[in-house]
Each structure stands twice: as C-alpha cells, then as structure tokens.
C-alpha cells in the first residue's frame, strides 16, 4: 500500500498558487521534498494534513482520503512542522503527559529514551530551548507513538551535524519496516541525498519532477563545454546551464545525448539549482 498519494492537488492564494501536484510515496520509502524558500513545501505539507484546505485534487494517506476522519488516521502519523507549536511554559515532562492522552500507542518508555538520546532537558520550559532543541523535541514527539508515516517539515534545520546524523540513522531504521514511510522537506539537500529513495523538486508552487533518487542521478549529468559546443547539442538534452569565465556548465539528460561526451555525475543540490536557474 502506498503511504501517500496526491493527485492534482491545487490550492490558490491571492499571491501564491500550488498547482496540480501529483506525488506517490510507497511504503518503506523516504521521499525528500526539495525547494527554495516560498516554493510551497510547507503549504504542501499543510494541505496533506488538511490544516489548509485544498481547492482541487485528492490526498490519500495510508489508504484513506484526508477529509474522512483524518484525526483517526493521524494516530498513525508523526508530524514535525516548521514551527513546533508547544506552549512556551511547558516542559518535556508535561508534553509527554499530554501526548500520552493524545495517542493510543504512546510509548512513555520510548519517549523517555529518545529525550535522553537527543539530550533534551526534561524540566526546563520550552521557551528556554534553542531552535535546535525545540526541533529535537518535535522529532521525539513525532516518533514516540510509533507512527507508520512520518512527515517532517524542515526538521533538520537548526540541528547540529551530530544530531542530524543521529536523526538520519533513526529515519533509516524507521523505514526498514515496509509499512513505514517518511516525507521529509529540507533545505539541507545533502541530508536528503544521503537519506531519500525518492526526490521531488518543488519550484514556485509547481512540482518540477518526482523521481527515484538513483534513477535521477543516473539520468542527469554535468557537461563542461564552450557556448558553441552547447549550441550544437540537441536542445531537449539541455535542462539548465551556468555560464562561467571558463565556459559553460550544463545540466544534461544523458538519454538524449550520444555516449561519446564526457558527462560527469551531478549532485541533487546542483541538479535542483541548474533546473530552476532562469538562464536556459
């Protein structure tokens, strides 16, 4: 069963529009959502959770439409939003007591273990936490009821490299189970590159592509050449370019090129930047 299916999802705001998003997240996989600030990543996540209501399309979470008794489906979803909405005066112990009454499968022992593993103070109020510690608490809450689907919105931002690494390990462990899946949006593309099975590029409210990460890295490459050489290439093969004093760095689709050219591998971050760069 797919953990998440989004079909033709559309939402119009006066100054922004999320258009016709189609996305599938199979069970046992991690999908990374990449996009610049304001691309619509948080909006997409809020639409999935029906925090913002869609204008068009369908969203199916764990086999159920997100408008049908979603609060019951949310028992199986762990969420970290870009701002963890815990009241300032609460401490981690009080949060644990509230969540124990919230989730049927809340595991107090696991919560305690995660608090210790992520080094979160238990009796200090939330307002004294740094952004990183707030995020860590959000992540612990999202994991402690043993969800089937994790939705993390910019959850790695503000975390130091050690904690980020520990979180990536936890996520890998989490998706070992075929019934588990995760949707992760992040600015730190290197994390997503290490972690994800699928990558989705969101740019100005439009989904540019969704593809298996390995296939993406296989299909696209970087070609260093001169402007004249670039013009000689088939136009459908060139997806983006960057001009520098030494020539041109072009993002190319390997399948549309002859095998003779020296196309180098491209990273996800570079791929996204070149795909969204305006000077094609």
């Amino acid at each position: 069963m797919n953990a998440l299916e989004i079909r033709n999802l559309t939402k119009n705001f006066p100054d922004f529009c999320l258009e016709d998003v189609n996305l599938t997240l199979p069970g046992g996989c991690i999908l990374g959502l990449v996009g610049e600030n304001g691309a619509g990543k948080s909006t997409l996540i809020k639409l999935i959770l029906d925090i913002i209501h869609r204008d068009k399309g369908t969203v199916t979470i764990l086999g159920k439409d997100n408008r049908e008794k979603l609060h019951l489906t949310k028992q199986d979803i762990g969420v970290v939003l870009d701002e963890v909405g815990i009241p300032d005066c609460f401490n981690a112990r009080q949060v644990g007591k509230v969540m124990a009454l919230t989730y049927h499968r809340w595991d107090g022992g696991y919560y305690q273990a995660l608090l210790e593993a992520f080094d979160i103070p238990q009796s200090a109020p939330f307002k004294t936490f740094s952004r990183g510690t707030k995020m860590r608490l959000g992540i612990v809450i999202a994991l402690a009821h043993r969800p089937k689907l994790l939705i993390l919105d910019e959850a790695t931002s503000g975390l130091d490299p050690l904690v980020r690494d520990r979180l990536l390990d936890l996520l890998r462990e989490f998706t070992q189970d075929e019934e588990h899946a995760a949707l992760v949006s992040s600015h730190i593309v290197s994390d997503l590159e290490k972690l994800c099975d699928y990558i989705a590029f969101l740019h100005r409210g439009k989904l540019l592509l969704v593809e298996e990460k390995d296939r993406l890295l296989e299909q696209y490459g970087l070609l260093h050449c001169t402007q004249e050489d670039l013009l000689a290439l088939p136009q459908e093969a060139v997806l983006g370019k960057r001009v520098n004093p030494y020539g041109v760095q072009a993002l190319v689709n390997r399948e549309a090129l002859s095998g003779l050219l020296d196309v180098k591998p491209v990273g996800i971050e570079e791929l996204f930047i070149l795909l969204t760069k305006e000077e094609r």
Partner: peptide
C-alpha cells in the same frame, strides 16, 4: 490567543484531534 501565539492552533491540527473536538 495563547494557542495562536505559540502556534499550538496549527500544531493541534497535525495531531489526532478533530477540529470539532
């Protein structure tokens, strides 16, 4: 007002509470 200030109102909608509740 406090829920709005702490963004609990948004977070609560990501948790298993219906809006009616």
């Amino acid at each position: 007002q406090a829920d709005r200030g702490s963004r609990w109102d948004v977070y609560a909608c990501a948790l298993p509470y219906s809006r009616a509740m």
